[in-house]
Each structure stands twice: as structure tokens, then as C-alpha cells.
């Protein structure tokens, strides 16, 4: 049942250890949220899953396959897609070209199909199909980043701070889409500072603090947990 599992993962930047033995499990078809303060190691954890930097010890397992030592390029082609922090769309390319980059390793027919699916999910992108991606608003760029990740037809999608720098209304819209993806059978691993929204949506949640998992529970329980409320939800 486990889609992605990290087992006692340690990650170093040079001599500095950023993750001190982290274990996380994401089951098929659920939304798992990882919350934590700045510098807790959230992004490091995601980067370790992607193999850049690789874990110094411990194992990363994707659908039963050990990917700890695999190169980034081959991990990213094996049914997992990431929406990187800060969107990172190709601003000089058009919306359509951005989407095609997402389906780089698929056939043309598959690309057409997933493109239609993405446009259905985000009608705004269809309107801006031939526009340079960099000229769009932040929210539209985030939609594009998610759409681009979906183009490779992944079975699991990782989102790194999708609410970063967006207006509350747009955040709500994005989270609705994430919920919709789960309902369609997608596995979602959500990394957020916006703890309230992330935990509200999640089936389960992890709290990461200075490179260690502090708490692990269902999303609703974490929301109700007084420690979490004090630290992340502003009391």
C-alpha cells in the first residue's frame, strides 16, 4: 500500500547534517502533509526524495523500489512528479510549451490527452495557451506548475509550498484542485508552511522540526493538537 517511504533517512550538506533520521510514509491515494517552520528541513526532505542531494544513510523507497542511489533524472521519470518551491516555470516559453516540457518523455498522443486534462482542470491556462508563461500572475503560474507536473501522468505528485506568495482566494482554489486530484486517485505529498490549510486537507500529517519528525497523526488530530496550535497555527 505504501507509495513512498523514507526509512531513517540522514542527509548532509557537506559536513552539516540536515536530516537526522527521518521516517515518513505516504500511502497510495492519500494526501499527506508535512509542516514545519523555516529551516526545519522540509525542502531538504523533498530534495532527498528526488536524489539531489542523495541520502547519506537510510533508504528511500518508491513503489517497492529502492531509489536512494538512483540519479535524479531516472527518479523523476518513474511515476513521480514534483511542483518545485517558487513554481519555477519556464518563463520565456509559452504556456503550451511549458506543458509539453512536462510530458517530455511521453508520446504525442499521450501529451495531447494530458494537455486536454490539464486545460479541463485549469481553464485559465487554456485561455493563456500561447502567452509567455512569465507574463502571467502568480496564481496562474502556480496552476501552470501543477499542470506541468501532471503532464507526465504521475501516480504521485509532490507539492513544495504551493501557497507561497499567493492571495488567500487563489490558495483556496489551489487546495480545492489538490483535493480533487486525490478524489481522482492521485497520491499527494504536500509540504507547507500554511499549516492550517494543509492539515485541513490532509489525511495524515507530519510535523518536522530541525531535521526530525516531532509529531505524526491524522490531519484532524494534528489540527486539534495544542502543541501544533501553539507552534504553527498562532495559538
Amino acid at each position: 500500500m505504501s507509495m513512498l517511504a523514507l526509512e531513517d533517512v540522514h542527509t548532509h550538506y557537506g559536513k552539516i547534517e540536515a536530516l537526522h533520521g527521518v521516517s515518513v510514509e505516504v500511502n497510495r491515494g492519500e494526501i499527506v502533509s508535512l509542516i514545519g517552520a523555516n529551516g526545519a528541513g522540509k525542502t531538504t526532505l523533498l530534495m532527498t526524495v528526488c536524489g539531489s542531494p542523495q541520502a547519506t544513510s537510510g533508504r528511500v523507497i518508491l513503489e517497492g523500489r529502492d531509489i536512494t542511489r538512483e540519479p535524479t533524472a531516472s527518479i523523476m521519470r518513474s511515476g513521480i512528479a514534483i511542483v518545485p518551491e517558487g513554481r519555477r516555470i519556464f518563463s520565456g516559453l509559452t504556456v503550451e510549451e511549458n506543458l509539453h516540457m512536462g510530458g517530455f518523455f511521453n508520446t504525442k498522443a499521450e501529451i495531447r490527452k494530458s494537455q486536454a486534462y490539464v486545460y479541463e482542470l485549469f481553464p485559465r491556462l487554456k485561455e493563456r495557451e500561447h502567452q509567455r508563461a512569465g507574463t502571467m500572475s502568480g496564481g496562474e503560474q502556480q496552476m501552470l506548475a501543477i499542470g506541468r507536473a501532471l503532464m507526465s501522468k504521475p501516480s504521485m505528485i509532490i507539492l513544495d509550498e504551493p501557497s507561497l506568495g499567493l492571495a488567500p482566494l487563489v490558495i483556496k482554489q489551489i487546495f480545492e484542485i489538490i483535493g480533487q486530484l486525490r478524489d481522482e486517485g492521485m497520491t499527494v505529498f504536500l509540504v507547507e508552511q500554511n499549516a492550517h490549510q494543509a492539515l485541513g486537507l490532509a489525511d495524515r500529517g507530519y510535523v518536522l522540526e530541525t531535521g526530525r519528525i516531532r509529531l505524526h497523526d491524522t490531519g484532524a488530530n494534528l489540527l486539534a493538537n495544542p502543541d501544533v496550535q501553539n507552534a504553527y497555527l498562532g495559538g
Binding site: 528526488c50 540519479p71 533524472a73 512528479a81 519555477r88 519556464f90 516540457m101 512536462g102 517530455f104 518523455f105
Partner: peptide
């Protein structure tokens, strides 16, 4: 345009 994004899409 963006090396990190390109790598995140599985490009080597």
C-alpha cells in the same frame, strides 16, 4: 530558463 525545473521533469 530554469535548471532545477528542467531536472524536476526528469531531464538529465
Amino acid at each position: 530558463e530554469d535548471e532545477i525545473a528542467a531536472r524536476s521533469l526528469g531531464l538529465s
